[in-house]
Structure formats: structure tokens, C-alpha cells
């Protein structure tokens, strides 16, 4: 019975947490403009993020910002200039907007590799390496530890493990300087 109550409480806590997390979740056009604009490069070859391009008289950034605003507002044109139909020309998701810009300006307009295919390698490689390194190190330490444990453990007559730990800790502190 007690276990059941505990489990109910855990379920309640989970549902409550999820509900709280969902509360107020929203996305204004301004926020979206900021977010998508920071995932794009200015096409003027300045090497800066679109919304950070501060070149006076930049030939591209103003036009691109207006295009982005239009895409977010859902009234964009097709990348070739004519009126578009379907999701491609009328904003849609962030991904669709970015695809619209790639179609118009080329892949260099994306501030990060987001096209799928080989671009995924850019994301997967560091994460895979990180996980491999962590798992590999853990395994190596465990193997070394099992070898080391075959030695005789330190025992001092008349001392419990906890007091040995305390004393070792004290020695560590006192002998470090």
C-alpha cells in the first residue's frame, strides 16, 4: 500500500512538473526573428551572423532581414522572385524558412550545418567522440582497478575503515604543504 502511495506521488509529481513546463510556452514573431536570424549568415561575405552584420551600406543584410520578416509573417515570395504557393513560399517552420534562404542564397547562408545528409556528420562526430571517450575511460579505470584490487588492502590494527579514511584525509591535507 505504502509503495502504491509513493508511486502515485511520483506520478503526480511528474505530471505536475510537465504541466508547469508547458505553461506559458510560446513563441512571438519577434523572438522567432531573433532565433532564425541568428542561425543565418549575411550573404555579403563579411562572415557575420545576419542579425549581427553591422556594415554600413551592406548590400545584403537589410534586404535579407526584410525577407526574413516577410517569411515569418507568412507572406514571403518564392526564392526565384515570383509568388509562391505551398509551404515553401509562405514561411512555415523554421526549417522551411531556412530552406527558402538556402534555395535563394546557397548553403553558405546557414550559420551551422543544418541540411541533413553529410551535415549530420558535423554534429554526430563530436558527440560520439565524447561518449566514446567517457565510456572508454570508465572501462579502462575499472580494468585497472580490478587489477589493483588483487593487492593486499591497507589495514591498520585497531582502526575502522571510516577512521582510516578520516586520518588519510587529514594526512593528505597536512602533508600537501
Amino acid at each position: 500500500m505504502s509503495r502504491l502511495i509513493h508511486s502515485r506521488w511520483i506520478q503526480f509529481a511528474l505530471v505536475f512538473s510537465l504541466a508547469i513546463m508547458m505553461l506559458g510556452a510560446g513563441d512571438t514573431a519577434e523572438k522567432r526573428f531573433e532565433r532564425v536570424g541568428h542561425n543565418m549568415m549575411c550573404a555579403c561575405s563579411c562572415g557575420q551572423i545576419l542579425l549581427e552584420c553591422n556594415h554600413v551600406g551592406c548590400p545584403d543584410s537589410d534586404r535579407m532581414r526584410k525577407e526574413l520578416q516577410a517569411q515569418i509573417a507568412g507572406s514571403g515570395s518564392s526564392p526565384t522572385g515570383g509568388s509562391a504557393s505551398g509551404g515553401m513560399g509562405y514561411g512555415g517552420s523554421d526549417k522551411q524558412i531556412l530552406e527558402w534562404f538556402v534555395a535563394k542564397y546557397g548553403a553558405m547562408v546557414l550559420a551551422a550545418p543544418l541540411r541533413g545528409g553529410f551535415d549530420n556528420v558535423a554534429w554526430i562526430t563530436p558527440i560520439a567522440l565524447f561518449l566514446l571517450a567517457i565510456i572508454g575511460t570508465t572501462v579502462i579505470i575499472r580494468v585497472w582497478k580490478s587489477r589493483t584490487q588483487q593487492r593486499v588492502p591497507l589495514k591498520i590494527k585497531g582502526m575502522t575503515t571510516s577512521s582510516t579514511d578520516e586520518l588519510r584525509e587529514r594526512i593528505r591535507r597536512e602533508t600537501l604543504y
Binding site: 541568428h38 542561425n39 551572423i49 546557397g106 550559420a111 551551422a112 541540411r115 551535415d119 558527440i127
Partner: peptide
């Protein structure tokens, strides 16, 4: 690498580094 494999150059800028 991307240009060598796919023929088109990918840009890797702040959003990538920040996320990883």
C-alpha cells in the same frame, strides 16, 4: 571537408559551436 565530400561548402559558425 564538406566541400570535398558534397561539392558545396557548409558554414560552421557560432550556433554550431554553442550547441556542441
Amino acid at each position: 571537408l564538406s566541400e570535398y565530400v558534397t561539392g558545396s561548402k557548409a558554414t560552421v559558425n557560432a550556433p554550431y559551436y554553442n550547441r556542441v
